[in-house]
């Protein structure tokens, strides 16, 4: 992390188990979502201050979903790719304790040592939303052709759908070195475009990150 420029690249994997019980019919599914991302943010000097750093930039994110729902027969396994180019903004507030303070919690007295802490909110809005999904009947026929293909009958749609994500990060820096720990609440919501079999999904995740050798 840099005050002037922030580059981030990485991957994430989320696995969710879902159940739905409606009208005495229970369905369950497993959703596995790996994603790759690359992000660049630059400080907006005119509106930033020493205490409040505001950055803007973008992020490329490729998210895949593998969905397993045995109740859907031949569609029991579904998968799609959701590539997105985001426009991003991030505000980082320095909430550091500059001097040691004596504090009291209930009957306990303690000394709060000075420490670098940051609270940040990042918002990403999809500028180019796209999807690589099944075609009209949500199934392919390649295995009937004796020529099985993974993305059989898939269609790539650009400028279609909508995606938005955000993360609220609380970063606590070590007093002894340049390392830090970060706790984040991450929210990601997206829907595909068109009028047919739209795909909608939201993820809420609590993320714990170890940061090494921060600047």
């Amino acid at each position: 992390m840099d005050k002037e420029r922030e580059t981030e690249r990485g991957s994430a994997l989320s696995i969710g188990f879902f159940g739905n019980n409606f009208n005495d019919h229970f369905s369950q599914s497993i959703v596995i979502s790996p994603s790759l991302y690359y992000s660049e943010l630059y400080k907006l000097k005119k509106i930033s201050s020493e205490k409040f750093n505001i950055k803007a930039g973008g992020m490329i994110n490729l998210t895949a979903n593998v969905r397993i729902n045995p109740d859907l027969n031949n569609n029991a396994v579904g998968y799609e790719l959701i590539p997105t180019l985001f426009g991003s903004a991030k505000g980082t507030l320095d909430v550091s304790r500059k001097v040691d303070k004596d504090k009291k919690f209930l009957f306990f007295r303690y000394r709060a040592l000075k420490r670098t802490k940051k609270l940040a909110l990042r918002l990403n809005v999809g500028l180019i939303n796209s999807s690589y999904r099944n075609g009209y009947v949500y199934s392919g026929q390649s295995f009937l052709l004796n020529d099985s293909r993974l993305f059989d009958g898939y269609e790539f749609k650009v400028f279609s759908g909508f995606r938005m994500s955000s993360s609220l990060d609380y970063t606590l820096h070590s007093r002894k070195n340049k390392n830090a720990v970060q706790i984040s609440y991450v929210w990601d919501a997206y829907k595909t475009g068109g009028n047919l079999d739209k795909f909608e999904m939201a993820q809420h995740a609590l993320r714990f990150t170890l940061l090494f050798n921060t600047k």
Partner: peptide, 15 residues
């Protein structure tokens, strides 16, 4: 014909 599955609003499934 290849059968294709789906779910009704009341939870029943069909193909």
């Amino acid at each position: 014909g290849l059968p294709n599955g789906g779910q009704l609003p009341n939870g029943w499934t069909y193909r």
